[in-house]
Amino acid sequence: MTETTIDEVLAELAALEDPSVREVNRRRGDDHGVNLSRLRAVAKRLKTQHGLAVGLWATEDTAARLLAVLLCRPKSFGRQELDAMVRQGREPKIHDWLVNYVVKKSPHAEELRVAWTADPDQVVASAGWALTTERVAKKPEGLDLPGLLDTIEADMKDAPDRLQWAMNHTLTQIGIEHADHRARAIDIGERLEVLKDYPTPPNCTSPYAPAWINEMVSRRGGA
């Protein structure tokens, strides 16, 4: 894709800018003002265009990077490219979409999971834990679940916010999916009290691990 095409897309995204959306996103730590439904509509029209996606990512504009995630071919990125992207895309929504829509579909996901989980950068480490949560739920074979619980028990309480949230999700997923580790997962959650007082809207499940585990297990009939 030519630079003109990138410029045209950037102009379209700029025209979709909404100050009220930007303000809501700002409170969440994001820095774009494009309604995500409209962004997805742009992506649906443009369809998959990996070259354009790479160019949009390089602009460093948050809305452009979100669109890039929707336009790219996840399996076309090399390991080093994905590692660089997760370190660059630090805004919460970019990080979330990049991990869930791109990295999880990559043949490099497991290698990156192992490397990222031990990374000193909390944003990168949180990506590793997000991939670990995915494996706990969908492909737990070969995972050291007791070892993961050991790490969570030792490190989650004092972890920075985004890393703490990701580790808590792994803890919860272990408790939900693996009955033989459920009691320990709940016990860790009760003792650490991470997110115990997190404000939760009515009819929503609390992110506090014991409550989340018990709610999801109950919905499944206690299995």
Results as ranks from 00 to 15, higher is better:
A41M: 02
D30A: 12
A43G: 01
L36H: 12
H32K: 02
R26E: 04
R26K: 10
R27V: 14
V34Y: 00
D31K: 11
R27C: 15
R22V: 11
H50F: 05
V42N: 02
A15K: 15
A41R: 05
V54S: 06
L56D: 01
E17F: 14
R27I: 15
R27H: 15
V21F: 05
R26F: 09
L56K: 06
L46R: 01
L16T: 13
R45W: 02
L46G: 03
L56Y: 03
H32D: 09
L56M: 04
H50Q: 08
V42P: 04
E17Q: 11
A53H: 08
G51C: 08
W57L: 11
V24N: 10
V34R: 01
L36N: 07
A58M: 11
R45N: 00
Q49V: 07
D18Q: 13
G29N: 00
K47E: 11
V42F: 02
V54R: 10
Q49I: 05
L36I: 13
E23F: 13
K44I: 02
G51Q: 06
R27F: 14
A41Y: 04
L39K: 03
V24R: 15
E23N: 15
D31N: 13
L39G: 02
L52C: 10
L46M: 00
G33N: 06
R45M: 04
A41F: 00
S20Y: 11
T48L: 09
A53S: 07
R28E: 05
V24Q: 14
R40A: 07
L16Y: 14
V34I: 08
T48V: 08
G33T: 06
V54E: 03
G51I: 02
E23Y: 10
L39N: 09
S37K: 15
L39A: 01
Q49T: 05
S20Q: 14
L46E: 00
E17T: 11
A53I: 04
L39P: 07
L16I: 14
H32S: 06
Q49L: 04
K44T: 05
D31G: 10
V34S: 03
L39Q: 07
R40L: 09
N25P: 08
L39T: 09
